[in-house]
């Protein structure tokens, strides 16, 4: 069933390309704003860069999440889906996994212009960078999928989503930023691995919570 739900998520996106197009365009626009707003030397910029990157990713994830749930609401496809013999926890998992994949792909596309426009020189382990990127995105999307499920039935859900998500995402933002900063400074993994473990714990805890409570939070 999970495979069917995941396939549907990808099929809807493949047809509309709304999520990827909006996330990518928004990401580029934010990078340009950052580049024009911060007139500082590259060495100072490199201390801001991890935070800026994750703030940008948080904004992009909000946009993507909104679209992911908006198409469920448009023709009330969600109503049909949750009345069907589908474990609602699996709906949450499919949203989480597909959302994370969109976010990782978007990040990979916008990372080169991010480094270029902010004049950052980086030399990091690809494996560790991928680990931080995937864990950070999984953390943002696990919360985002949960909060979106909660907000989607409300009026003004597009406002409610960031209002609820941003404060709740603070632990993910702090851990992802600290881990990225350690990575960029070239510090050994042991000195910042605690932040990766915090992210891992967060992902597992909220993944389980989401799987178990999604049934109740989608109730009208």
């Amino acid at each position: 069933m999970f495979r069917i739900l995941l396939k549907k998520e990808f099929l809807v996106e493949l047809k509309s390309k709304e999520i990827s197009a909006s996330m990518l365009t928004f990401g580029i626009a934010v990078i340009l704003i950052f580049a024009f707003s911060f007139n500082v030397p590259p060495d100072i910029m490199s201390t801001f860069a991890p935070g800026l990157f994750w703030v940008m990713t948080l904004f992009i994830s909000t946009l993507g999440l909104h679209r992911m749930y908006a198409y469920e609401k448009e023709f009330d496809a969600f109503g049909f889906l949750i009345s069907a013999p589908v474990d609602r926890g699996l709906i949450f998992l499919a949203k989480w996994v597909s959302g994370t994949l969109y976010l990782v792909i978007t990040d990979l596309f916008i990372l080169p212009p991010f480094l270029l426009f902010l004049q950052l020189q980086v030399s990091v382990s690809i494996g560790l960078a991928a680990l931080v990127l995937i864990f950070g995105n999984l953390g943002l999307m696990v919360l985002g999928s949960l909060v979106s499920g909660l907000a989607m039935r409300a009026k003004m859900s597009e406002v409610l989503l960031p209002v609820l998500l941003f404060p709740l995402a603070s632990p993910v933002m702090i851990a992802a930023t600290k881990a990225s900063a350690g990575l960029l400074k070239g510090e050994p993994f042991q000195s910042w691995q605690v932040w990766v473990f915090i992210l891992g714990t967060f992902i597992i805890s909220f993944g389980l919570v989401g799987f178990l409570v999604f049934d109740h939070i989608t109730e009208e």
């Binding site: 809807v12 509309s16 198409y71 023709f75 009330d76 109503g79 049909f80």
Partner: peptide, 11 residues
Amino acid sequence: YLGHAPGMYPG
């Protein structure tokens, strides 16, 4: 359940 709305994906 077939509600008032189509209950499907417009795209």
